[in-house]
Deep mutational scan, measured.
Amino acid sequence: SIKEIEKEEIIKVLKEVNFNKKLASEILGIPLRTLYKRLKEYGI
């Protein structure tokens, strides 16, 4: 599903940037606030 793909992509990017959420949100092209929402939604 799209949610699974998105979750995997978020985890992959977070690992690449050593869990720097600000940098991860910039790489993913989403606002930091949205990233936090996704992390909560996906239980990351």
Results as ranks from 00 to 15, higher is better:
25 S>E: 01
25 S>P: 00
32 L>N: 01
3 K>A: 13
39 L>G: 01
35 L>K: 00
8 E>W: 14
29 G>Y: 02
35 L>C: 01
24 A>D: 00
41 E>C: 06
15 K>I: 13
43 G>V: 05
16 E>D: 11
5 I>M: 15
24 A>M: 03
18 N>D: 09
40 K>L: 13
15 K>M: 12
7 K>N: 05
25 S>C: 07
33 R>D: 14
12 K>R: 15
17 V>R: 02
4 E>A: 10
30 I>N: 00
32 L>M: 08
24 A>W: 02
9 E>G: 10
17 V>K: 03
6 E>I: 08
42 Y>G: 03
24 A>S: 02
12 K>V: 05
20 N>S: 07
23 L>R: 14
9 E>D: 10
23 L>W: 07
3 K>Q: 12
43 G>D: 09
34 T>Y: 09
2 I>R: 06
26 E>K: 14
27 I>G: 02
35 L>Q: 00
33 R>A: 14
9 E>W: 15
31 P>Q: 06
27 I>V: 11
33 R>H: 12
21 K>P: 12
3 K>D: 12
16 E>T: 12
32 L>G: 02
19 F>T: 02
1 S>C: 12
11 I>M: 14
42 Y>I: 09
26 E>Y: 12
14 L>Y: 05
24 A>R: 00
29 G>A: 06
26 E>L: 14
19 F>H: 07
2 I>C: 08
30 I>K: 01
17 V>G: 02
11 I>A: 05
12 K>W: 07
19 F>S: 04
4 E>C: 11
16 E>A: 15
26 E>R: 13
25 S>K: 02
22 K>D: 04
42 Y>R: 02
24 A>P: 00
16 E>W: 10
5 I>P: 12
22 K>A: 10
14 L>D: 00
31 P>L: 05
28 L>E: 00
31 P>F: 03
27 I>K: 11
15 K>G: 07
26 E>Q: 14
3 K>I: 11
15 K>E: 08
12 K>M: 09
17 V>E: 02
44 I>D: 04
14 L>E: 00
19 F>I: 01
18 N>L: 08
25 S>V: 04
29 G>D: 05
10 I>L: 13
23 L>E: 07
8 E>S: 12
20 N>T: 02
31 P>N: 10
7 K>R: 13
34 T>F: 07
38 R>L: 15
27 I>Q: 07
23 L>Q: 09
14 L>Q: 00
28 L>F: 03
39 L>N: 01
9 E>K: 15
23 L>T: 06
5 I>S: 13
34 T>M: 12
8 E>P: 04
33 R>S: 13
5 I>N: 13
40 K>Y: 11
13 V>E: 01
42 Y>H: 07
28 L>K: 00
38 R>N: 05
20 N>D: 12
6 E>N: 11
33 R>F: 09
15 K>Y: 10
27 I>P: 00
19 F>V: 01
10 I>N: 01
12 K>N: 09
17 V>N: 08
42 Y>W: 14
36 Y>I: 15
16 E>N: 10
16 E>C: 11
19 F>A: 03
21 K>T: 14
23 L>F: 06
40 K>C: 08
29 G>S: 05
17 V>C: 07
41 E>S: 06
3 K>F: 11
24 A>G: 03
19 F>D: 05
44 I>M: 09
39 L>M: 15
42 Y>S: 03
5 I>F: 13
21 K>V: 15
1 S>P: 13
31 P>T: 15
40 K>A: 12
42 Y>M: 13
20 N>V: 05
32 L>F: 04
12 K>Y: 06
16 E>F: 13
8 E>V: 10
2 I>S: 13
25 S>A: 15
1 S>G: 14
19 F>Q: 05
30 I>A: 01
20 N>A: 04
13 V>T: 08
26 E>G: 07
44 I>N: 04
23 L>H: 07
42 Y>E: 04
42 Y>Q: 03
42 Y>T: 03
37 K>A: 14
41 E>V: 05
18 N>C: 09
14 L>G: 00
35 L>E: 00
36 Y>D: 08
9 E>N: 15
44 I>Q: 05
8 E>Y: 13
11 I>G: 03
40 K>N: 07
14 L>A: 01
33 R>T: 12
7 K>D: 06
7 K>I: 15
8 E>F: 13
7 K>P: 06
38 R>I: 15
6 E>D: 11
27 I>R: 13
1 S>Q: 13
32 L>H: 02
14 L>W: 04
8 E>R: 13
44 I>E: 04
22 K>E: 07
40 K>V: 12
31 P>V: 03
17 V>H: 06
27 I>W: 06
28 L>G: 00
27 I>L: 12
13 V>K: 03
31 P>E: 09
4 E>H: 10
6 E>M: 11
